[in-house]
């Protein structure tokens, strides 16, 4: 029953004969990316960014994606969000090919992009104005308020974004990404611009959110400690054009508090990841050399 999706990716569609897959809970892999290749067209010809990207995230899982700068990690988030379609290869959510944006996705970026003319509460409510919902206005507000309370922003509902600190804005941005109860939460370096202490606070808040909200997460990050602290799977991408180079499973029994960082297992995982990043960057340097050699 659980393997069905890997055999016939589109089998969740009702007109195909697979009664087992009608129940979403039985679908194991929520996000599935298969051999995705993509190139941007630039003035100096096509610029390949993805070359053989493979990724699968189980329902309720949390996957971190790390890799050298500019290797195509943000392109990956746009693919999963349905904001662009790859040149070749497929992206599936629940076994359905992603070709357009869908309301079951929530996004948060490094820039919290709150709307300055709205209060914090109105900002969090924004997705509920777009996504079709049966909730009453009152229920919507209750949902938003409870999320804000969960991230420690109780009492700031009627403030403007300009009155909040960077960390607080990022928390509000997380609430906005989750308010419509998305299946998939896409985080594109959301903690990258914060100071170290604020960042650790937000890591803890992410764990609390994960315990309360039933989302499946993809986190793009540059911080290896962040990746093993938050994710149950870390995917290392090679340098541009990116392919999946290495997948690290973080043991689920690992305690998720900051002391976890200082155990021998964590040190091992970090060493492995650092090693993989080094390999990725060396590969990138080689590609750059050969291509510059070819052009001369």
């Amino acid at each position: 029953m659980r393997d069905c999706i890997s055999l016939i990716p589109s089998c969740r569609k009702v007109d195909l004969l697979c009664p087992d897959c009608l129940a979403p809970a039985s679908v194991d892999k929520l996000i599935e990316i298969r051999d995705v290749r993509h190139a941007y067209s630039t003035a100096s010809g096509p610029l390949p960014v993805l070359a053989g990207l493979e990724l699968s995230v189980r329902e309720g899982g949390f996957t971190a994606v790390v890799g050298p700068s500019g290797c195509g990690k943000s392109t990956l988030t746009r693919l999963v969000a349905g904001l662009m379609i790859p040149d070749s290869g497929d992206v599936y959510l629940h076994g359905e090919r992603v070709t357009t944006p869908r309301a079951t996705v929530g996004m948060a970026f490094q820039n919290p992009v709150l709307l300055e003319w709205r209060t914090i509460l109105q900002n969090v409510l924004l997705p509920l104005e777009i996504v079709p919902t049966t909730l009453s206005q009152r229920a919507k507000e209750e949902r938003a308020r409870s999320l804000l309370a969960l991230v420690g922003l109780e009492g700031f509902e009627d403030k403007r974004p300009s009155e909040l600190s960077g960390g607080m804005r990022q928390r509000a941005s997380l609430c906005r990404a989750l308010v419509h109860q998305p299946e998939v939460l896409i985080l594109d370096e959301p903690f990258g611009a914060l100071d170290a202490f604020t960042r650790e606070d937000l890591w803890q808040i992410m764990h609390e959110l994960k315990a309360r909200e039933p989302f499946t997460g993809i986190l793009i990050t540059h911080d290896l400690r962040e990746s093993i602290f938050l994710a149950d799977q870390v995917v290392v991408l090679s340098g541009r054009p990116a392919r999946t180079q290495y997948v690290l499973d973080v043991p689920s029994e690992a305690p998720r508090d900051l002391d976890m960082m200082y155990t021998a297992e964590s040190a091992d995982m970090l060493a492995t990841l650092r090693d993989q990043i080094r390999i990725a960057r060396e590969g990138e340097a080689q590609v750059a050399q050969t291509s510059s050699g070819a052009s001369q």
Binding site: R78, A81, G82, L83, T100, P101, R102, A103, V105, M107, F109, N111, V113, L115, E116, W117, L126, P127, E129, I130, V131, R176, H180, I186
Partner: peptide, 28 residues
């Protein structure tokens, strides 16, 4: 900023909705 557009576009909002909810007030 493209992120403003992406926030609404990723939820399936139309171009007009994005203009009304974000571009217009942001330009005021």
């Amino acid at each position: 900023e493209p992120e403003y557009r992406d926030i609404l576009r990723s939820l399936g909002a139309s171009r007009f909705t994005i203009f009304r909810k974000i571009a217009l007030p942001k330009t005021l």
